[in-house]
Design a protein around this nucleic acid. Sequence first.
RNA 1: GGGGGUGUAGCUCAGUUGGUUAGAGCGAUCGCCUGUCACGCGAUAGGUCGAGGGUUCGAGUCCCUUCACUCCCGCCA
Length: 594
Amino acid sequence: MNKFRSHKCNELNKKDIGKDIILSGWINKKRDHGNLLFIDLRDNYGVTQCIIEKQNKNFSELEKIQLETVIQVFGKVVNRSKDTINKELETGEVEVSIKDFKILGTCKELPMPVFSDQEYSEEIRLKYRFLDLRRKKIHENIILRSKVISFIRNQMHELGFLEFQTPILTSSSPEGARDFLVPSRLNPGKFYALPQAPQQFKQLIMVSGFDKYFQIAPCFRDEDARADRSPGEFYQLDLEMSFVEQEDVFEVVEKLLVNTFKKFSKKKLMFNKFPKISYSEAMLKYGTDKPDLRNPLIINDVTEIFNRDDVSFEIFKKLIKSGSKVRCIVTKNTKNKPRSFFDNIDKWAKSQGASGLAYFTIENDKEIFAKGPIGKFFSKDALREIMKKTLAEDGDSIFFACDKQIEVEKIIALARDKIARDLELINENIFAFCWVVDYPMFEIDSQTNKINFSHNPFSMPQGDTDKINFEKPLEILAYQYDIVCNGIELSSGAIRNHIPELMYKLFSVAGYTEDQVNEKFSGMISALSYGAPPHGGIAPGIDRIVMLLANEKNIREVTMFPMNQNAQDLMMNAPSKINEKQLKELNISLNLKK
RNA sequence: GGGGGUGUAGCUCAGUUGGUUAGAGCGAUCGCCUGUCACGCGAUAGGUCGAGGGUUCGAGUCCCUUCACUCCCGCCA
């Protein structure tokens, strides 16, 4: 028998009555009746009620003991009378009558209670993360995370993938996010970078002939945090396959995600076969490349209708002349909604920095007409045209936004979400996955007016490689895809460009010379020149998958030891200063701003 | 870098129009209590009202500055 325990705190039941047992765990809660003391003992597995009476020599010491002290209990399992059974507890039919006990770990006065449903500030939770992690909800989230990762590993092995580790100290790359840098002692003045993703390595693994690779890979990006984005590090299910087309990658990922989400959540999947939406369609219909398909509202472009002579809404007409677009959202059967419903949405839009949302409601008084602030600007014909275009009917309302394309997409996408939430159109008990495909290879940087890679410079452009028109780079589409669930981007991936000559051409469009490409991506270019297989892959975000499964909105709720928004670890005091000797070894001197 | 929110006891929070000695619950300490499972009852201790400055006879409350945490924008191939 183990020195510390004969049973775990979830194990004892009626069959064990009469047995002498040993339990070890934390004191979750005490209930002191003066001559009778109840102690709820907790471990990772559950809670067992222990009981001691005044006659016992240990009574007064146990009565004084702090919550969260770790103790070992020697006792006998006893029956509970019918009216004292606790159905909430796995062990609730029995209790342990304490004979003796031993303190294994003392506990000072707690900075935050462990046994409580109260919410605490992030500051205190992160500083005392080890206490926070004892609490039920987050403890279960972390266990869920472990199970999900283990399940995914098994699935990947079953699907024929091999897991490999890739370097953590690697080289800085010019594209993408800001790198975390590590100075090199042996190479003065030079720096390693932590990988933003094992992107180049996984392609090199394919060139090395391993066919199917995966890794639960740590990724490091020095970018500012969000609720769903940890500063510093996060994990991806990184995978790559040789001799595949886009569809082959989709098949693997769909299988994996369907299995995982069915196993770990009670929520239903909206689609077992994930719909594919092109990037341009997503931007038009949803205003974003991460559409929440639980939301039934669809955006329409009605710019043309506002150009008609029988539409006299001059504000929009003027904006359209200077290049703006009009996008709209139809809400079904909202003619009886109170004025405040519409006003709130307009007010909300203004708070989001838009000039507001114009709207009218379609009503029928013998003849159809538009009622509302801008209704009077439309002729019957124009109104019918809008209804035809947007499939709006009598009783529906239409909200309009007008701005430059990028701006109007942004605000109408937010409005789509806001309106759906106000009308409670989103079913929270569903996972709606979709693929967003056909991303453009390049985009224009709005600040510098230069052409940049819009996603990944290593993606394969679509079409016959001989016939790609490099004169119109913005029209080149890539075999580049994202997977989105409930409006959350889970991952992006691509079929890679394994042809060096084509890569040089694409990089030259983005302003890189051949020499620059050779210098920055020497390993990759070299590898692709010695017989590279066609290959492609994807990298779903583990943290976000677990977030969805745990039904959490904040990534720190599924991360064991996260940093705060300023990328500090309050428990470990990271980052921290280093001493002169360390700096000297690294040939580094500090030049801090006052 | 910018915008919003929050900051009062160890923890979670209340604190009215600027007005007496800043309150509650949990926790801590002490006492009572033999069937609780958020046990109950009584008492005690515990406060730089985030910090600094200002207005005022008087500031937790109003004004300015600043710090911390958080949410969002920028950023995130």
